[in-house]
Nucleic acid binder design. Structure first.
Lengths: 209, 209
DNA sequence: TAGATTGTTAATCGATTAACAATC
DNA sequence: TAGATTGTTAATCGATTAACAATC
């Protein structure tokens, strides 16, 4: 096991490994070699072994990898078993869609609560999650200390809301607004979902082929 | 201008360039150097010049780039002015959220129509887009020939729906289901939005800091 | 003109792939 | 045991950064 900084390229492949292993696991596959996993995922066996070697030795010569074991090891590396908790900030259409459809639990996240400004939504609940007033944010976060905030609010309030939440101790943002958030605070992370960027990438590809 | 294959890394940076230039443009900024754009975007000036040189010569020595001009050049490269049309397949919460909030027009896409299986939704409309029955898909696509399909349907129908749509001539998929779609058909592109992957990346980061 | 800044070539850095000894 | 497959080192490939002549 090499002890060094893990590159972004490797980090971004981890969830995909997990996804494939979870799938194999659910299909009852017991073992897999880097070679056959590689051909399934359309990457080289070499890359898989190289990537995994950043975190430990999970295979066995002549055998390959035990699917259940490797799945749970990668899950662990990703922090699926860390008991993270999150709040959803903004319960408009998109927030609602996530609350309704997204399986947070499967990724090890517990939804603590949701917050909204719209009076029509405050007090209602979606899948047992009560939607609270945005005014209660400070009190709630201070008391319950969730780790992550899902931001599904209008663009123009995104950065100021993020600042508020960072001050309250939120350390991760799953940011669905189309602005890039930033902070001076160390140890705070943003995952920006730029819908528009991906649609433009698609636009680029279909425009020249 | 170098005439060679454009790398994925460059392609994925283009929408971000566009986003920043659009922002500068809307703020009325007239000119910008690779240096100051680089510090705004937190990348090197060298990278910007290198990236742009794949597509042409858009700057001027001693001056920099005209914001309006570079913005529209990159927009053109991305195909924003190609008059692409799309359909939304699946009008559940997520499809609804996109129809309601997402500014397709700004990216040069026109929404043609939306399709659903749920009888409760068929015949209703969102922002002037009528939701049709999934049964009308073949007829509609054959007749109007949209370029792109937004897939916001349950996972287990995603691949078969994609196959149907590819057969009908759809060439791009903005895929919000958490499965990786594929096809033998050349000239068909998938942009997969894997929500779970990005949340796991965030989970990884906050788990070790 | 002098200063600024481009586009491009060359140098560096990092990531991917290949090769192979170790070993189950 | 023999065959398979790992983890790791070395080789290659590609992407980023630096440098600079050209020129507005």
């Amino acid at each position: 096991m090499k002890k060094q900084k893990i590159s972004d390229a490797v980090i971004h492949r981890l969830p995909r490994y997990y996804r494939y292993l979870d799938d194999l696991f659910n299909k009852g596959v017991v073992r897999i070699s880097s070679n056959s996993l590689g051909s399934k995922m359309d990457i080289t066996a070499s890359q898989i072994r190289q990537d995994l070697s950043c975190f430990g030795e999970f295979g066995q010569q002549g055998y390959g990898y035990n699917v259940a074991e490797l799945r749970s090891e990668i899950g662990h590396i990703l922090g699926i078993d860390s008991g993270h908790r999150l709040i959803v900030v903004g319960a408009g259409h998109l927030g609602h869609a996530l609350l309704q459809n997204f399986d947070f639990q499967k990724l090890g996240f517990q939804i603590d609560s949701a917050f909204e400004v719209s009076p029509a939504l405050i007090g209602t609940s979606i899948r047992n999650i009560t939607i609270r007033s945005m005014d209660e944010l400070e009190e709630y976060v201070t008391q319950y200390r969730p780790d992550v905030a899902v931001l599904t609010v209008p663009q123009h309030v995104a950065q100021s809301l993020a600042d508020r939440l960072i001050a309250l101790g939120i350390r991760g943002f799953w940011n669905f607004t189309n602005v890039e958030l930033s902070t001076q605070e160390p140890g705070v992370f943003f995952e920006n979902i730029h819908f528009a960027d991906t649609l433009l990438t698609l636009s680029y590809r279909i425009s020249r082929s």
